[in-house]
């Protein structure tokens, strides 16, 4: 019983991080039709921003705040500088542009900062565990779960209640008609990037708190997982991205916990095989639409 609760907490915490990242990818995809491969670099930006703030001797809380703001600003800057000029050139061009942005950022990190990892010491109070109802639950896990829940709730309220939120959902269904409602195309897209930056920033903080270091390529693996989550959940579906993130995490954690030891090296491949199996059964993803409405 104890193991099950413990592993569920682990899966929820990891799933939350995947879900936040996947949701950011899906958000941009839903309004722009772009899978932003530079999304992982937003986490890296968060990491370096935190590193500089901590090196300057400022408290961890400030570093978290600056890290998240840096991710939001970078996401919006990416949109403005790299994606807006090629917006009408087609999705293939935008996709290539996002590869270029990702590569340029890698090179900047390597040449201006360092190719080697920089330590990001987390405060002592985050390392321990709390005893909740007889279970020892890691503080970082607890933070992951609550941050994810809070962000998902806030985002849902924003998308359901605010005019801009409704406009973003409308834009994901029919962009030209959304503009006919008087809604500024740049505003919608810029907001989508800002939200993706916020989500990547928070995911970045949670990821970094686990790892304790930042390096130029750290964004690659999590964004790959997020991409798998998006496809698993159904490309274009926001709730699908969240569900995909949690599903992937549960598969990974279950394999890590219950696979025999000599199978452990293959757990990533087994996880991917399971995902492919799910997609064979439901090619449109867990919550994807069978066909476009238009």
């Amino acid at each position: 019983m104890d193991v099950v609760v413990q592993q569920t907490v682990n899966a929820l915490a990891l799933g939350g991080t995947y879900a936040l990242l996947a949701l950011g990818l899906a958000m941009v995809f839903s309004v722009l039709g772009l899978i932003n491969f530079a999304h992982g670099e937003l986490m890296t930006v968060t990491g370096y921003a935190m590193y500089f703030v901590l090196t300057a001797g400022l408290p961890f809380e400030i570093a978290v705040l600056v890290g998240i703001v840096a991710a939001i600003a970078t996401a919006m800057l990416m949109e403005r500088v790299a994606f807006r000029p090629v917006r009408n050139a087609g999705t293939a061009t935008m996709l290539l542009t996002s590869f270029a942005v990702s590569t340029i950022l890698h090179m900047l990190f390597q040449n201006l900062i360092s190719a080697r990892p920089k330590a990001l010491p987390v405060p002592d109070w985050m390392i321990g565990a709390l005893n909740i109802a007889g279970f020892d639950i890691g503080v970082i896990q607890l933070m992951s779960i609550s941050a994810t829940a809070l962000l998902l709730f806030a985002l849902t309220v924003f998308l359901r209640r605010s005019t801009l939120g409704i406009a973003m959902r409308a834009a994901s269904l029919d962009f030209p008609v959304t503009r006919l409602m008087g809604i500024n195309a740049n505003m919608v897209i810029s907001t989508a990037f800002a939200i993706s930056g916020l989500l990547a920033g928070v995911a970045g903080v949670l990821w970094l708190a686990q790892r304790g270091s930042v390096d130029p390529l750290m964004g690659f693996l999590p964004v790959l997982k997020a991409f798998i989550a998006v496809v698993l959940g159904g490309l274009g579906s926001l709730s699908g991205a969240v569900l995909g993130g949690f599903t992937l995490a549960f598969i990974e954690v279950a394999l890590r916990a219950f696979l025999p030891d000599d199978w452990l090296p293959f757990r990533e491949s087994i996880a991917l095989a399971l995902v492919i199996l799910l997609l064979l059964v439901r090619p449109e993803g867990l919550l994807g639409r069978k066909e476009a409405i238009r």
Partner: peptide
């Protein structure tokens, strides 16, 4: 907007 409610479609018309 097929996946928005009737009320939401009207709201966005007044954006």
């Amino acid at each position: 907007f097929a996946n928005l409610t009737v009320a939401e479609n009207l709201s966005i018309g007044a954006a």
